[in-house]
Amino acid sequence: MLKNNTILRLKRILLSDKVNMPSGLIQLLKKDLLKLFDSYFDIKEESLKIEIDSNADGEYDVSIKGVSERIKSPRFMR
């Protein structure tokens, strides 16, 4: 839904304003996570969602959600 995307985008902007978090941080994190997940799952970039929020204690809530159709055979099991 468009509204949810707007809220998500706005949350990111407000958070980066407050904690001086570079707006590209999520993109960088996403890129690194995709590299990591690619060793274990078939995962599409658009299905990986990262959300960083701040809670009342000033800590960061980081949530990562992704959808994969297939688990790859981990290298150490080969």
Binding site: M1, L2, K3, N4, T6, I7, L10, K11, L14
Partner: peptide
């Protein structure tokens, strides 16, 4: 239509 935020959404943010 869910195309824009409602006032309570903005107040919560």
């Amino acid at each position: 239509e869910g195309a824009t935020m409602d006032a309570p959404d903005i107040a919560k943010l």
